[in-house]
């Protein structure tokens, strides 16, 4: 891997970690507040359906996950599974899978 590529991967993982720290915090606080009166599907959908702010927030969350997790997995695969050059393809596909599944879930509660 080139020095430039390596540096940008590292930066991407750090920046996405910052975004995730914020998103996880908002997500947890929201959960703690909304379950106070019991939790129902109808209540969740009432909050998220048609809501542009929640759509943007969870889109940011999913994009950050889709960037952060594959880079971390790449390190683990190289260190512990001793995977070589093929690992980039595998983790990129995994990132794409996270993006598709996350987007599908967001669209499910928005539309």
């Amino acid at each position: 891997m080139s020095p430039r590529h390596s540096a940008f991967l590292w930066l991407a993982q750090r920046v996405s970690a910052l975004v995730l720290a914020f998103c996880v915090l908002v997500h947890l606080i929201t959960m703690i507040i909304v379950v106070q009166g019991g939790l129902t599907a109808a209540e969740i959908l009432a909050r998220t359906q048609g809501s542009i702010p929640w759509l943007l927030f969870y889109s940011l969350f999913v994009i950050a996950v889709a960037i952060h997790a594959p880079i971390g997995l790449r390190h683990i695969a190289r260190e512990h599974l001793k995977l070589g050059s093929g690992v980039e393809v595998i983790v990129s596909l995994f990132g794409l899978l996270l993006l598709i599944l996350g987007s599908r879930a967001i669209w499910g509660v928005f539309s």
Partner: peptide, 13 residues
């Protein structure tokens, strides 16, 4: 030097 310490064997690991 910065190029030498980048990459998979370098500081980012």
């Amino acid at each position: 030097r910065l190029r030498a310490v980048s990459g998979d064997a370098g500081c980012h690991s």
